[in-house]
């Protein structure tokens, strides 16, 4: 159960622009073990989606992986030729996306799109593929899957479409599922159902999940470990319970909208002022310093590295552990 499925080491995903190379993902190291879920949290613009596309080998041009390794069960994905990468994609590593409304092709039936995913990786008869696709639909608890098989995406509700996306992603029984904001576009009850479904399917198959979200509530529900991203970097990383009990990075604290251990200044931290700086206008020093209520002189000069506080808890902040500074 403890095999490391994915081990990202010092990953840099850069875009060459006229203003020079900008790094959407800037030196990230993370890993996920079989049967566990890593939650990646951050605001829009923090580079979390680009991180997942980097793992999939789907960074849109002119972006490219500039440095680092993505070790998937011992193979460095960044070194794989495109055809080998394609064999893994949708087969050993799958991805589901934020918008179930637009992520399915409106002109093909749901069944066809699942069969297509299977056929890309399996050599089987059409009848067998259809059976498997219907089985995949049944697995994600879609009622009367035989009938749904022949329907088009516009005939399904948002929640159903996301289930179809999950069925498609899991049809080949991948080792790793990357879920990029899988529930953001859905209403709260459906959201809970989908998260529950993901958890059940994980228990069945033992796959590792990377769950990308901006919603700490979602992370609390399903993740085992959390990595908080800010402006292309991981600023805090810890088991989910630690992050909620004892958040250390000011940004994490801000994300939670509360500060359990400090009575003063609570009001100021309910919302984090400002926005994530665009990657071509990063402040010197710690990237969070313009928005940080704890900012000190050293924060404006040099970037803090991600350093271990305890065995499982790492944080990138000059002031960590925060308690000592208050």
């Amino acid at each position: 159960m403890s095999e490391t499925i994915l081990d990202i080491r010092g990953l840099v995903t850069a875009f060459n622009t006229r203003n020079g190379a900008i790094r959407a993902v800037d030196g990230i190291s993370l890993s996920v073990k079989r049967g566990t879920t890593l939650g990646i949290v951050g605001e829009s613009g923090s580079g979390k989606s680009m991180l997942s596309l980097s793992v999939m080998g789907l960074v849109p041009p002119p972006g490219r992986i500039a440095e680092g390794q993505v070790m998937f069960r011992g193979t460095d994905l960044t070194k794989l030729p495109p055809s080998k990468m394609r064999d893994l994609r949708g087969n050993r590593i799958s991805m589901i996306f934020q918008e179930p409304m637009t992520s399915l092709n409106p002109v093909h039936t749901v069944g066809f799109q699942i069969v297509e995913a299977l056929r890309a990786h399996r050599k089987e008869t059409a009848a067998r593929l259809k059976e498997e696709a219907i089985e995949a639909l049944r697995k994600v608890r879609i009622p009367s899957p035989e009938r749904r098989f022949d329907e088009y995406p516009h005939q399904l509700s948002g929640g159903m479409r996301q289930r179809v996306m999950i069925a498609m992603a899991l049809a080949c029984k991948p080792d790793l599922l990357i879920a990029d904001e899988p529930t953001t576009a859905l209403d709260v009850t459906i959201q809970a159902q989908i998260l529950e479904l993901l958890r059940e399917l994980q228990a069945e198959t033992g796959m590792a999940i990377i769950l990308i979200t901006h919603d700490l509530g979602v992370v609390a529900q399903v993740a085992d470990e959390v990595a908080v991203m800010y402006a292309g970097k991981v600023v805090e990383r810890a088991p989910v319970s630690r992050v909620f009990q004892d958040p250390q990075h000011p940004y994490t604290i801000g994300l939670m909208g509360s500060m359990p251990r400090m009575e003063e200044d609570v009001d100021r931290l309910v919302a984090i002022s400002g926005v994530v700086p665009p990657p071509f206008r990063l402040p010197p020093g710690c990237r969070f310093n313009p928005r940080c209520p704890f900012v000190g002189s050293e924060c404006r000069v040099e970037q803090p590295a991600l350093a271990a506080l305890t065995d499982a808890h790492a944080v990138a902040c000059w002031k960590a552990p925060l308690e000592e500074h208050v």
């Binding site: 789907l58 064999d87 994609r89 991805m95 992520s103 890309a120 996306m165």
Partner: peptide, 14 residues
């Protein structure tokens, strides 16, 4: 540029 094209690539289609 549509999302479903990204999905198609994510499925590992040529």
């Amino acid at each position: 540029g549509a999302d479903h094209v990204r999905t198609a690539r994510a499925k590992g289609l040529p």
